[in-house]
Simulated assay, not measured.
Amino acid sequence: MAKKSWLLKWPALRQLANGDLAGLGDTAMSERTHSLKPRTSTADKIVGSVCPYCGVGCGQKVYVKDGKIMDIEGDYDSPISEGCLCPKGSATMQLVTGTHRGMNVLYRRPYGKRWEKIPLKQAMDMVADRVKQTRDETWEDQHEQGHPLRRTLGIAHLGGATLDNEENYLIKKLFTALGVIQVENQARI
Score class of each variant (00 low, 15 high):
Gly160His: 00
Gly154Lys: 03
Lys173Trp: 07
Asp141Cys: 03
Val183Glu: 06
Asn168Ile: 06
Leu158Phe: 01
Met103Val: 12
Ala2Arg: 14
Leu36Pro: 07
Glu166Arg: 13
Asp75Trp: 09
Gln94Asn: 13
Gly160Tyr: 01
Cys58Lys: 04
Leu21Ala: 06
Val96Tyr: 00
Arg114Leu: 13
His34Thr: 07
Pro38Ala: 15
Pro148Tyr: 00
Ile80Lys: 15
Tyr63Met: 05
Leu21Met: 06
Ile171Lys: 02
Gly48Trp: 12
Ala91Asp: 08
Cys86Lys: 10
Pro11Phe: 02
Lys121Ala: 09
Gly74Pro: 03
Leu106Val: 06
Ser30Asp: 04
Arg114Thr: 13
Arg39Phe: 03
Ala187Pro: 05
Gln145Leu: 14
Arg14Asp: 08
Pro119Ser: 01
Ile80Asn: 13
Thr99Trp: 02
Lys61Thr: 03
Arg150Ser: 04
Glu140Leu: 09
Ala187Cys: 03
Leu174Lys: 09
Leu120Ala: 01
Ala128Lys: 09
Val127Glu: 00
Leu170Asn: 13
His100Gln: 11
Gln145Ser: 11
Thr176Lys: 09
Ala187Ser: 07
Ala28Cys: 10
Lys9Ala: 12
Leu85Pro: 04
Ala91Phe: 04
Thr42Asn: 13
Lys61Phe: 00
Asn104Met: 15
Lys65Arg: 09
Glu167Ala: 15
Lys173Pro: 09
Cys58Phe: 05
Ala17Gln: 08
Leu174Asn: 11
Lys172Glu: 14
Val56Asp: 07
Glu184Cys: 02
Glu166Gly: 10
Thr97Phe: 02
Ile46Tyr: 08
Gly25Gln: 04
Thr97Trp: 00
Trp115Lys: 11
Arg14Pro: 08
Leu120Asp: 01
Gly160Trp: 07
Cys54Gln: 05
Gly55Asn: 01
Asn168Lys: 10
Gly112Cys: 08
Lys37Gly: 13
His147Ala: 10
Thr92Lys: 03
Asp20Arg: 07
Leu170Thr: 08
Met1Ala: 11
Lys132Asp: 08
Leu36Asn: 10
Thr152Glu: 00
Met29Tyr: 11
Leu13Arg: 07
Ile80Gln: 15
Ser35Leu: 14
Val50Leu: 06
Glu82Pro: 12
Gly23Phe: 09
Leu120Trp: 03
Arg188Met: 14
Leu163Trp: 07
Gln133Phe: 01
Phe175Asn: 05
Thr99Asp: 13
Leu21Asn: 10
Thr40Asn: 10
Thr27Arg: 08
Lys68Met: 05
Asp66Tyr: 02
Arg14Asn: 02
Gly74Ser: 14
Thr33Ser: 14
Ile118Thr: 03
Leu13Trp: 08
Lys173Thr: 15
Met93Tyr: 15
Met1Gly: 06
Val64Asn: 06
Ile69Val: 11
Cys86Trp: 08
Arg108Thr: 07
Asp26Met: 12
Gly160Asn: 00
Arg108Lys: 15
His100Asn: 15
Val50Ser: 11
Gln186Val: 13
